[in-house]
């Protein structure tokens, strides 16, 4: 359990994080969303005990990060922004060092070491110095370091930043695989990532919590939630006709001349009504699909005012 209570951080005049409160329970993968400079990293740095909050605190499995920092830090694995590592060490030396500091020993240590190296595919770079690794491998070493002691709480600041699509996919699979019994918090500004791995998302901007819900709930806030997109030849005529339906709020032109998107009024289902019109008019529709909502639009909506 992570309990964040009224967490605030002031840098001089600027309030970077303003009385943030939330809790995360086991099995949850929390996506921490926000524009650059929203206070995501600062919040993570406070939860992990790197910087001291100006007010408020965070408890990790009951251990207050300020009153009992060592106990709290033992519960956690943390991947800092940019996945820093000691460049002069080989991957093997680095992981050994982390295992030493985490006081891992005996069979369990060896087992975890082998497991993590295999899971994250580090075999081929084990004896390479971290300085000489590609960005993707560095990030993977950072993830390996964070999960080595099999922590119950995992906090990762932009774990897939700078990875190619295959590597992103792998890291997400890894997070998925661990999600069952752990508490995972990841920060990101990649919205597809939230849909892909998170069971819950928190949006912050200017240090304020602006939204908290499942990715589906967030998408439901979108104007495009439940919108129907059609691709057909007589798009102009169709737009006029469909615009008159009681369920329809508006009709927008699509990317091409033959594409239109029909937006529903709040809480109205469109598909059935549109289907009836298509039937009556005997249109030939090449493409027809319903949208779940656009997270990027919701994101802009929520954070737009605050970021301006």
């Amino acid at each position: 359990m992570i309990e964040v209570e009224q967490l605030s951080k002031r840098f001089g005049e600027r309030l970077a994080v303003d009385a943030l409160s939330f809790t995360v329970g086991p099995g949850e993968v929390l996506g921490f969303l926000g524009p650059n400079g929203a206070g995501k990293s600062t919040t993570m740095k406070m939860i992990t005990g790197f910087i001291r909050p100006s007010a408020g605190t965070a408890r990790i499995n009951g251990y207050d990060i300020q009153a009992a920092p060592l106990a709290a830090k033992r519960e956690m694995g943390y991947l800092p922004e940019g996945a820093p590592g000691y460049g002069d060490m080989s991957v093997r030396q680095f992981l050994d060092f982390i295992a030493d500091i985490r006081a891992m020993s005996g069979a369990w240590r060896k087992e975890r070491m082998d497991e993590v190296i295999q899971e994250i595919h580090l075999e081929q770079v084990l004896d390479q110095k971290i300085d000489t690794l590609s960005k993707g491998f560095r990030r993977r070493v950072g993830v390996a370091q964070a999960i080595l002691h099999d922590p119950r709480v995992l906090i990762m600041d932009e774990p897939t930043d700078g990875l190619d699509p295959n590597q992103k996919h792998e890291v997400r699979n890894l997070i998925h695989g661990m999600a069952k019994d752990k508490i995972i918090v990841i920060s990101t500004h990649i919205l597809e990532e939230v849909e892909a791995v998170c069971s819950r998302a928190i949006v912050i901007a200017r240090g304020h919590l602006l939204a908290d819900g499942t990715p589906e709930e967030l998408m439901a806030r979108s104007r495009y939630h439940g919108a129907v997109t059609l691709d057909l030849d007589n798009a102009r005529e169709a737009a006029d006709l469909l615009g008159q339906l009681p369920e329809v709020a508006a009709v927008e032109d699509g990317d091409t001349d033959t594409e239109i998107t029909v937006l529903p009024r709040e809480g109205q289902a469109l598909m059935a009504a549109i289907g009836r019109v298509i039937d009556q008019q005997r249109w030939t529709v090449r493409e027809l699909y319903q949208q779940k909502g656009r997270l990027d639009e919701v994101f802009r909506d929520i954070t737009g005012g605050a970021a301006a």
Partner: peptide, 14 residues
Amino acid sequence: KSGTIELLLTLPVT
């Protein structure tokens, strides 16, 4: 500069 200070001080060391 390398950012490892954040790693170091979030490990269980005083």
